[in-house]
Design a protein around this nucleic acid. Structure first.
Length: 835
RNA sequence: GCGAAAGUGGCGGAAUUGGUAUACGCGCUGGAUUUAGGUUCCAGUGGGGGCAACCCCGUGAGAGUUCGAGUCUCUCCUUUCGCACCA
């Protein structure tokens, strides 16, 4: 404890001092003591976009609060950080500023690293890495080849957005209203060969695994379930009149089969192509469909259009001839490229049938006597079959089986499990990404790069104009020899989707410098990640791909668990004036400016206090000032307390608990002590359930309590008074330290509590302090609050009822009325039910 | 369009299991300190009525279950997120 203390809170002086000390002492460098209980806390690593925004500050503060809290609980905590360094923005910046994507990326990383350090996050910086470095991405190239050998990756044609003016492939984000964002040209669908990872081979496991992720938010699990979309249905074949190839469809509603009045096929369906040869109108329609965007949202809101193909299908059971239509909303690449239309019982089919005057045939009637009016909408619920021949009168389940049996007998259909989930296309026609390790040889075909030839290094020193990949023009990259026959060959110029890098980085943090393998046994100690923190926008894609990669690595024998993230916290967005903070909206707040004005602790405190972690946070300048005011009040209290401390008993000063008989202490003091312990109990619970905003409220209440305590004067009971005060302040500092680590560290030492507060014991509740002999109960009449009574804590039901009924206010209310029933909720209330 | 959430004072939010609605903070009003502004401190603050005791209303809208609903169920409205090449 120092002799003097600054009266003014000056974060600009203390924060850099403490930051320097953490760095010098390597306070947060993790010790690999495998005998200790570990806690791996990870926030989704940032894309190095330039500067930190408030969303970053919030995300990484939440992760840091959890890390520091877990460390104070005594665990061996790993909290690493790195950079998701490949991506499209670097290419855009390269075009705009005439700078190589690598140069731009590394400069951003340097800037953001300095910002992270200023924010005081308890990272183990020795494990930092960037995914754009060959010693990282070489291992995903290695894994890709392993998957190739196992048949888990394959190449097939897939659609991209093609900008015919810029002669380049555009991301969905770069297509605005169907046009290229730079060229303004109408985008075309173009089919090119691309690499896919067979995520569908893991569909069942990814789906079933969700049930075990009990510490994930239910909404995320539901979204993933729906994304995978497992459904049971029938695959049905329709023969085509005057054509050899039958049309295959999948339906989850075979009970409506007899109500099918037409079929729809995709414009790219082979049959549609044949139809186009005979009809210029059909050809024109198909050409127009070339401009349908690839994004599903655009597709779904599209005006449904179609044209009769001239072909007819034969209904597999009735033999009826059904017209085959070509429709813009049916996609060749998903499913079979054809659907059976049942306009009476599917809303989309209904609208299409109305628009093109196609017949609507009702085959399902509601159960019971419920009305069913097909004049305005389809009836889409399950019911009882009618107009369906032998199937009439059956319910959904019976009809499902009967239709299946009937079709199977004819060889025209069978039961099938269908997934909405599609295989993961990982090819990107871009420069700034990890090269896909494949070689194309005229003689040998597609040849994977041999393991000992990895990594395939991406040249960083390139001139980048944004028109196609520069890799095609770099001879020493593009031209190579075939690993099998040695003849001239060329490399794949596509790079990996950046989701590949972010799918396994969490595991690499366990063994960052390893150059002999992707992972080693250390990963078995550290994974799974105990706490993962990140935005809800990643609920499906990133989190599903990481769950896939974890299993792929497990099946390579690199890991011994099934899931990458045991617990997930999805934090909300930072809003200002009700809209997401973003450069384009011009409503951002610069964290650096705030830190310069208030210090880091205030910024962190606000990020935590303003909203619960999983909800959106509304920015408020005056709210930040309120947080600053609170920290100043803490400092002011500490300053006075520091001054008073020399008058305190040696026991209290040295934090050795003096023995005090609390039964002998006046109620004015014991009630403060009880309140303090109740607030502590609540704060511990709030930490556990990760509701950190109310932890801050609790600390504010504790400080208010201390100011109340100062006003109390009980001569002869100074030791108890001092003890409560000193203890209460040490509790405030510890509860607050994960959130405002700088000030609390400074005061912890200044007031002689110890050295590093992050190594202090987490405060415990004195349960004896919570005991009370009298309790207050609320008395309600018909659920409305009418009075309060005080009863002994151990009062029985009868005496509580008597106390409630004889209460003066209650008697006034009960005049001339009869009480039927009394409900007593222990420790809470009494409700009198009155006529 | 499909999938997932959210809606509580002037504002951010609290209310652990269905049990005292609005804790804590901001803002505002009044007062103290200060030459002044700022800072700091004290008091008040959901709406309506009443001299007062106190009463009525009140958690997006409407219904329902219950002794009791912000919390559970249904319908609707609004906002946000995701939709496979932004990350």
């Amino acid at each position: 404890m120092t002799q003097t203390m600054e009266p003014q809170y000056n974060p600009q002086v203390i924060e850099p001092e403490i930051q320097q000390r953490w760095e010098e002492q390597q306070t947060f460098k993790v010790k690999e003591d495998f005998s200790k209980e570990k806690f791996y806390c990870l926030s989704m690593f940032p894309y190095p976009s330039g500067r930190l925004h408030m969303g970053h500050v919030r995300n990484y503060t939440i992760g840091d609060v959890i890390s520091r809290y877990q460390r104070m609980l005594g665990k061996n905590v790993l909290q690493p950080i790195g950079w998701d360094a490949f991506g499209l923005p670097a290419e855009n910046a390269a075009v705009e500023n005439n700078i190589a994507p690598a140069t731009w990326t590394y400069a951003n990383i340097d800037h953001m690293r300095a910002q992270f350090k200023r924010l005081g996050f308890a990272y183990d910086w020795s494990r930092e890495f960037a995914t754009c470095k060959p010693d990282y991405y070489r291992w995903e190239q290695w894994l890709f080849i392993k998957l190739y050998q196992k048949g888990l990756v394959y190449r097939k044609n897939a659609i991209v957005n093609w900008d015919p003016v810029d002669q380049t492939v555009l991301a969905n984000e770069q297509v605005v209203n169907g046009r290229g964002w730079r060229s303004g040209a109408l985008i075309e669908r173009r089919e090119i060969p691309q690499w896919f990872i067979k995520i569908t081979a893991y569909a069942d496991e990814l789906l079933d695994g969700l049930d075990k992720l009990e510490h994930w938010p239910e909404q995320v699990r539901t979204m993933q379930r729906n994304w995978i979309g497992r459904s049971e249905g029938l695959e049905i074949h329709f023969d085509v009149v005057n054509d050899d190839t039958p049309i295959e469809i999948f339906t989850t509603r075979p009970d409506t089969l007899m109500g099918s009045t037409y079929l729809c096929i995709a414009p790219q369906h082979p049959l549609a192509q044949r139809a186009a040869q005979a009809s210029p109108d059909i050809q024109q329609f198909i050409t127009a469909c070339q401009h349908v965007q690839t994004a599903e949202a655009a597709l779904a809101t599209l005006e449904k259009q179609g044209i009769y193909s001239g072909f007819e299908a034969i209904h597999p059971l009735s033999g009826e001839k059904l017209p085959i239509w070509i429709a813009n909303f049916v996609l060749m690449e998903y499913g079979t490229g054809a659907v059976m239309a049942v306009p009476a019982h599917d809303q989309r089919d209904y609208e299409f049938a109305q628009a093109y005057q196609l017949p609507i045939k009702q085959v399902i009637t509601p159960t019971g006597n419920a009305a069913c009016d097909l004049a305005h909408a389809a009836f889409t619920e399950q019911g009882i079959l009618q107009n369906s021949g032998d199937f009439d009168g059956m319910d959904f389940a019976t009809a499902f089986d009967a239709v299946e049996t009937a079709l199977q007998r004819l060889g025209k259909g069978k039961r099938q499990t269908h997934y909405r989930l599609r295989d993961w296309g990982v090819s990107r026609q871009r420069y700034w990404g990890a090269p896909i390790p494949i070689i194309y040889c005229d003689a040998c075909g597609t040849v994977p790069v041999p393991e000992d030839a990895l990594p395939i290094v991406l040249p960083e020193d390139v001139s980048f104009e944004g028109k196609g990949s520069p890799l095609r023009n770099i001879t020493e990259f593009y031209h190579t020899q075939c690993p099998q026959c040695g003849k001239d060959a060329h490399r794949e110029t596509d790079t990996f989707d950046t989701f590949v890098e972010s799918s396994w980085y969490y595991a690499r943090f366990a063994c960052k410098n390893l150059d002999k393998a992707m992972l080693d046994d250390r990963v078995k100690y550290w994974t799974p990640v105990d706490q993962y923190v990140g935005g809800i926008e990643h609920a499906v894609m990133h989190l599903l791909y990481a769950r896939l990669f974890h299993r792929l690595m497990r099946d390579e024998g690199l890991l011994n668990s099934d899931e990458p993230f045991s617990r997930l916290l999805t934090q909300g967005m930072v809003l200002r004036d009700g809209a997401k903070m973003s450069k384009s909206k011009g409503n951002t707040v610069d964290p650096d400016a705030l830190i310069a004005k208030f210090g880091v602790d205030t910024v962190r405190l606000f990020a935590i206090f303003a909203a619960p972690p999983d909800q959106s946070l509304e920015w408020s300048d005056s709210g930040v000032e309120g947080c600053y005011r609170f920290l100043k009040r803490v400092w002011a209290f500490a300053y006075d307390h520091h001054d008073e401390l020399k008058n305190f008993s040696a026991d209290v000063r040295h934090n050795s608990n003096p023995s005090i008989d609390w039964n002998d202490v006046p109620r004015s003091l014991t009630s403060i002590r009880r309140e303090m312990n109740e607030l502590l109990k609540q704060a511990r619970y709030d930490y556990q359930r990760q509701q950190f905003n109310t932890v801050v409220s609790g600390c504010m209440k504790l400080l208010n309590l201390l100011y109340k305590l100062i006003e109390i004067n009980e001569p002869g009971y100074e030791p108890a008074h001092q003890l409560i005060m000193h203890k209460c302040f040490s509790i405030i500092l510890r509860l607050l330290s994960p959130i405002a680590p700088f000030m609390t560290q400074y005061l912890w030492q200044e007031l002689g509590f110890g050295e590093l507060i992050v190594d202090a014991h987490w405060p415990k509740v004195a349960t004896d302090a919570l005991r009370t002999d009298q309790i207050e109960l609320v008395v309600q009449i018909n659920g409305k609050l009418r009075s309060r009574i005080t009863v002994p804590a151990n009062a029985d039901q009868t005496s509580i009822e008597t106390a409630a009924l004889t209460d003066k206010k209650i008697q006034q209310h009960l005049q001339h009325k009869e009480c039927h029933k009394i409900i007593v909720v222990p420790n809470k209330l009494v409700n009198l039910v009155v006529q």
